[in-house]
Amino acid sequence: MTKYWIGVASLNHVMGGVEGGFSQLCHGKEAPLKRMKPGDWLVYYSPKRELGSEEKCQCFTAIGRVKGSDIYPFAMTETFIPYRKDVDFFPNAKEVPLHAISKLDAWQKYRSSLRYGHFEIDKAFFLVLAEKMGLPMKYENK
């Protein structure tokens, strides 16, 4: 059964993943990637523009579908080797500001989960986000 997820990462990290076709969550931990299966959907929320910066983003910034089950290490530096999983990101996703959905009842049950960095959402809330991000419904059923 398809599951729907939110990942939390700075915009610059999200865009690196979109360009590279991968997801890297919770500072490179393997566990969140293990929860996502092929065919699952991932929406990224970016609280900030860059890691370590105070410049806020506060938008949903990318949406994609998990491509495979492989989780692999990727050496970014000699001492930082995070885990990644391939994701097919929708190339024309629109950024959706948090304030555009903050009044929805569905969001109220998830907002405190942002601190976890990766969490499951229900299909109804995913469809709201997907529509606002411009994802064609034919893409969702692919």
Score class of each variant (00 low, 15 high):
117 G>H: 06
86 D>Y: 03
27 H>I: 07
35 R>E: 11
90 F>H: 06
111 R>M: 04
120 E>C: 10
124 A>P: 13
15 M>K: 14
69 S>Y: 00
67 K>C: 08
20 G>F: 01
12 N>F: 14
140 E>K: 00
67 K>Y: 07
12 N>R: 09
37 K>C: 13
117 G>C: 03
91 P>C: 07
35 R>S: 13
97 P>N: 12
125 F>P: 04
67 K>V: 10
59 C>M: 12
5 W>R: 05
85 K>G: 02
42 L>D: 07
103 K>S: 14
22 F>A: 08
7 G>Q: 08
97 P>D: 15
29 K>P: 00
9 A>T: 02
110 Y>V: 04
126 F>K: 11
24 Q>C: 15
86 D>T: 10
116 Y>K: 00
84 R>D: 01
92 N>I: 01
128 V>T: 11
99 H>S: 15
107 W>V: 01
71 I>Q: 05
92 N>S: 12
103 K>R: 14
65 R>G: 03
82 P>S: 06
35 R>C: 06
100 A>D: 15
69 S>T: 08
109 K>S: 12
121 I>E: 02
5 W>L: 03
31 A>N: 10
69 S>F: 00
130 A>H: 03
72 Y>P: 09
133 M>V: 02
142 K>G: 15
49 R>Y: 13
26 C>E: 09
104 L>E: 08
89 F>H: 11
52 G>S: 05
48 K>G: 01
79 T>K: 15
101 I>G: 05
129 L>S: 04
46 S>T: 04
20 G>R: 15
101 I>S: 05
22 F>C: 10
116 Y>D: 01
50 E>G: 04
70 D>E: 13
38 P>A: 01
53 S>D: 14
75 A>H: 08
107 W>Q: 04
19 E>H: 09
88 D>S: 12
5 W>K: 06
68 G>Q: 07
37 K>L: 14
142 K>Y: 13
47 P>Y: 06
71 I>D: 05
121 I>V: 12
63 I>C: 14
4 Y>L: 01
137 M>V: 11
86 D>H: 13
80 F>Q: 08
118 H>T: 08
54 E>Y: 13
88 D>A: 11
43 V>F: 00
137 M>H: 06
78 E>F: 08
31 A>R: 12
98 L>M: 08
84 R>T: 02
30 E>A: 03
34 K>P: 00
32 P>T: 11
111 R>L: 00
4 Y>H: 07
131 E>S: 10
22 F>P: 00
37 K>D: 15
